[in-house]
Design a binder for these strands. Structure first.
Lengths: 302, 302
DNA sequence: TATCCGAGTTGCGTATGCCGCAACTCAACT
DNA sequence: AGTTGAGTTGCGGCATACGCAACTCGGATA
């Protein structure tokens, strides 16, 4: 161990009570090592969950990115406190990240935020994903046929993460949701993604059912009922549940092992998508989602 | 110094002949520390480009991301070769990145590619950028008024990087360009961004004028003439220059110091945007871009 | 204007965390 | 079966990243 602080232990209280400043660790943020997504123990080192990191500094750097993503902007001192390291260490880590434009200073001398280097990388990352590549032609066709907006989502952490979007002709104005993280219980995509999980996992993922509109599902039993429907029918619907005036229908995309890995959705303004039409869209949507699954190696039965 | 290797030179073959394995350093990829973007002299120092990295491992990790962005997929051994480090080192770095889903294995045991953790971060990054936030309402209005697709771009490295996009009603089908990097000389956005730079810098940025269509500008003199027009007229146009059938007009966005930091564009299918109409769009586009500049603190004269 | 305070950066010495080595595992070919 | 080639892991030494403290810088207070 180097200093009594931040010795990366596993269980005991292990506060980073070290140097002069009272350094306190913070609970896992949004990104976080995979494995434990739900119930985390309280008051743990920020980078401690899961397996040991093979390279400490990289782990700390990633933690910085994670914390910045969660908080928006943070100063060096605050970052140091959250990591449980000395100011100077945080400063050097941030400087290393800044050199690659992964973070940037907000104003001459001050706080830091995530930088556009991440955008460059993300652009390549999304292009390299099999799903996106395989789904794109299908999405384009869907958008052309229906005139609606097509979205491709994946389960990430405990949110739906939009991977790709194709805007159709009748979109009033749609901006980009790609990279955005959306609550699971209030969207058609979210319901479909949840429908691939067992009841226990679902409960772990949706701890709180936040109401975004009067029509948002806030009752766990009702949500589970909808998930059951989604499992048997092969699609899910959400109308005015995340945002008033927004309606959508989604269907699952499966990988070669038959697991629901992604979700494909059609969305548009509620006034143009009455219940009958929305439900009718399953006839084009489900085959499209199935085709994507096929391209990914799925050989099962829809 | 640790090993004599990985001297990150810029251009010549510059072998990092070091340890046992024939490790070779690689020329800078796409991301790269800011500062020197074009070809600098081949100084032999380790931290050659710009300043030394304050944290070696973080620097190496970032290099890995950069190399993966450039190559798509790479194995551990190949990464090690490019970094000029031992296999095991590369393996551990990659493992650290994988823990945060910044990279992921393509198939059980094999090559690595960029991961979706980057998407999560990028989503937050773009949301936190002042420009995007300030430009969004303006973009929405533009899209609603014109029915065309609106894009917001920034100069990054030696490409145009799309930061945000709003699709209008008449978009046939538009998919997401956000995060994509587009050549500067073949797009209206690129021309506008270049118009903010002096002739010397422009020449350094566009080394080669690749032809994407028969109408792509491949003559430096002609490009510079267009840039001059853009400087005096306050907008730039590109028709069928990047992709056949794609037309666009762009106008500059300035920061508080009056520097051209971003570019706002309207684009649509060529058959719907005859030269007269395209040019006429400047009457709505330029005021919109100016409004964004104002929001960013610009007090100058359009 | 002078003084303090809080925040970020930098030189330095140290021990710790990382790196290279080599042995290991595992597939894919021959 | 043997061979090659690629990725992972235990180990020991030493370079590296850390903590410390002194420094700079700007803003607030008196």
């Amino acid at each position: 161990m180097r200093t009594p602080s931040h010795g990366r232990p596993s269980d005991p209280p292990t506060i980073g009570g070290d140097v002069g400043a009272g350094t306190r660790a913070v609970t896992r943020g949004s990104l976080g090592p995979p494995g434990t997504s739900a119930g985390r123990r309280a008051s743990d080192e920020v980078g401690a969950s899961g397996k040991e990191s093979p390279v400490q500094s990289v782990d700390r750097a990633a933690t910085i990115l994670d914390q910045l993503a969660e908080a928006g902007e943070l100063g060096v001192t605050e970052l140091a406190r959250r990591l449980g390291v000395h100011k100077s260490t945080a400063s050097r880590l941030v400087a290393a990240l800044e050199k690659w434009e992964l973070v940037e200073q907000v104003e001459g001398r001050g706080k830091y935020r995530l930088g556009i280097g991440l955008l460059r990388l993300a652009g390549t990352a999304v292009a390299g994903l099999d799903v996106v590549e395989q789904a794109r032609p299908v999405c384009r066709r869907l958008a052309a046929e229906t005139g609606l907006t097509v979205n491709l989502a994946v389960l990430s952490d405990n949110h739906a993460l939009y991977l790709d979007q194709v805007a159709g002709t009748s979109a009033l104005q749609s901006y980009n949701w790609v990279g955005q993280r959306i609550p699971l219980h209030a969207t058609s995509n979210g319901k479909v993604l949840l429908s691939g999980l067992d009841r226990h996992t679902v409960r772990a993922l949706v701890r709180t059912l936040t109401a975004y509109t009067p029509k948002t599902i806030t009752d766990l039993a009702r949500l589970e009922a909808e998930l059951d429907h989604a499992r048997t029918d092969g699609y899910a619907i959400a109308v005015d549940e995340l945002e008033d005036g927004l309606a959508a229908i989604a269907a699952p995309v499966r990988n070669a092992h038959g697991e629901i890995t992604n979700s494909l959705s059609l969305s548009g303004p509620t006034f143009r998508l009455d219940p009958a039409r929305l439900r009718g869209l399953r006839r084009v949507l489900i085959p499209a989602a199935t085709e994507v699954s096929r391209r990914l190696g799925w050989r099962g039965q829809a």
